[in-house]
């Protein structure tokens, strides 16, 4: 939903970042207002995954230039946990498994950290369980997964559902979903997309990072951005995604050649 008067949640200006000695992001510009759904598309190695990790504050990436304003404040100086507490959420492409850390307990600690930041009371174990059981419905997840270790032994689909469950609990202002569709069969994809749609509202925004059209068949973006060689090459409406699906990315190479840019290798 595009409203030009909606407040700006995230403003990325000329963002450059590297991992080790390799520059990956080479000047990304992107503005996200509340109520909007953005999709960032691009080939492997275009820098789209890096963008989501940099926004979440992954320590392996170093920002070398540019700025990111989150609700008007400098996002880049916040620790990863502070970004999360203030409502920035990253759905991981590969959620890690942490044996021994109980999923339910983890969800409660995370939810309470967010609530404390919002000036809300912490939920005790009973109140929290009620909340979790309600939110489980968003992703149709089996409550048995709550008692397991965090993502421990979860299938790819189960991990992604657990990601969206976390999103449902943390109620982020900006949700960045990094290749959330990868590794999902069609049923799981529908459930996950359904969850995202349910959570998207006029006061928050979603940034989908994806390779394929199939997620965008289920979640309709307001804007589609095509990334290549560490920058956004073109921005359009949802039709741009369909165009990519039909014509492929060959035009990207021509465009890059015109700009004289080297494709980035990692993303």
């Amino acid at each position: 939903m595009i409203r030009s008067d909606a407040p700006v949640l995230l403003e990325i200006n000329d963002l450059c970042a590297r991992v080790e000695d390799q520059p990956i992001l080479k000047g990304v510009n992107l503005t996200i207002r509340s109520g909007e759904i953005h999709a960032v598309m691009g080939r492997n190695g275009s820098g789209k995954s890096t963008l989501s990790k940099v926004l979440a504050g992954h320590p392996a990436y170093t920002v070398t230039a540019g700025s990111v304003l989150y609700r008007g404040e400098n996002l880049l100086e916040l620790a990863p946990e502070q970004r999360a507490r203030t409502g920035l959420f990253l759905g991981f492409q590969y959620p890690v498994e942490i044996a021994g850390v109980n999923n339910l307990e983890f969800l409660r600690v995370a939810t309470n950290a967010r609530r404390t930041e919002q000036g809300l009371d912490e939920l005790d174990t009973f109140a929290f369980e009620d909340l979790v059981r309600e939110r489980l419905g968003v992703v149709q997840m089996d409550p048995a997964f709550l008692e397991r270790g965090l993502n421990e032994g979860f299938s790819g689909g189960e991990k992604k559902r657990n990601e969206i469950l976390q999103m449902a609990l943390l109620e982020p202002l900006v949700a960045i979903l990094d290749e959330t569709d990868s590794g999902l069969d069609i049923d799981a994809l529908r459930i996950v997309a359904g969850g995202v749609n349910q959570l998207a509202g006029p006061d928050n925004a979603t940034l989908l990072v994806t390779h394929y059209q199939r997620l965008l068949d289920l979640i309709t973006p307001d804007y589609v951005h095509v990334m290549a060689a560490g920058r956004i090459l073109r921005t359009g409406g949802k039709d741009l995604a369909l165009e990519l699906e039909r014509d492929g990315y060959d035009w990207v190479d021509q465009e890059l050649a015109r700009l004289g840019a080297e494709p980035a290798e990692v993303g």
Binding site: A56, G57, H58, P59, A60, A79, P80, E81, R83, A84, R85, F89, L90, F92, P95, V96, I98, F106, V109, A110, A113, R114, E117, Q166, L170
Partner: peptide
Amino acid sequence: ADQLFYLQSRGIG
């Protein structure tokens, strides 16, 4: 580092 980052990105210090 990945495990730490995952927890941190959920607001856990």
